[in-house]
Computed example of a mutant assay.
Amino acid sequence: MRNLYGLGVYAKVYKGITRKLVTSLKLSGNYNTIHINGTSNTNNRFIIQLQPGLSYFISEKLALEASISNLRYAKTYDDINAFETKNDRFSFSIDTSDINLGVAYYF
């Protein structure tokens, strides 16, 4: 059995292009830790990323959203069977695997 705990936060800033079309920039961060019961195995992840996007408002409160690419920093720590690994990684990508499409409702 595994225990997984995590916490994530984000902030998003919008800048209008037209009345219905806006650009956005999202800054997010999260932390996850996994512990496998009955062992000393642990896995920790800290990730922070910056992601640009576009939103098109089809009504006053409903928008179609798209984002592509991200600039990401990840720090990992694994302790598996007393073998420790630590990694720090920066990445930037623009490809079809980074396209996110969605619908957002604003209260």
Score class of each variant (00 low, 15 high):
K75C: 03
I34K: 07
I58A: 12
N41Y: 01
K26V: 09
N70P: 05
R45Y: 10
N41R: 02
N37K: 14
L27F: 12
N87F: 08
Y31W: 15
Q51V: 09
L62I: 08
Q49K: 10
I47V: 15
Q49S: 13
N37T: 12
A63F: 00
N70K: 12
F92G: 08
Y56P: 03
L50C: 00
E84K: 13
F46I: 03
S59D: 09
I36W: 13
I80A: 00
L50Y: 04
I36D: 13
R72Y: 04
E84Y: 03
I34N: 12
I94L: 15
L62F: 10
I48N: 02
F57M: 12
K75A: 10
F57N: 11
N70Y: 03
L64D: 12
I94W: 13
K75P: 01
N37W: 13
I80E: 00
T42L: 01
D88G: 13
D95E: 10
H35C: 01
N44P: 02
S93P: 01
H35I: 06
T39S: 09
D88E: 15
Y31V: 15
R72V: 13
E84L: 07
S91H: 01
I80H: 01
S24M: 09
T96Q: 13
T42E: 11
N37M: 06
I34Q: 11
T85L: 06
L64I: 15
K86D: 08
K75S: 13
I58Y: 11
K61N: 15
D79M: 05
N43L: 04
F90H: 02
N44M: 06
I48R: 02
G53C: 08
Q51I: 14
L54N: 02
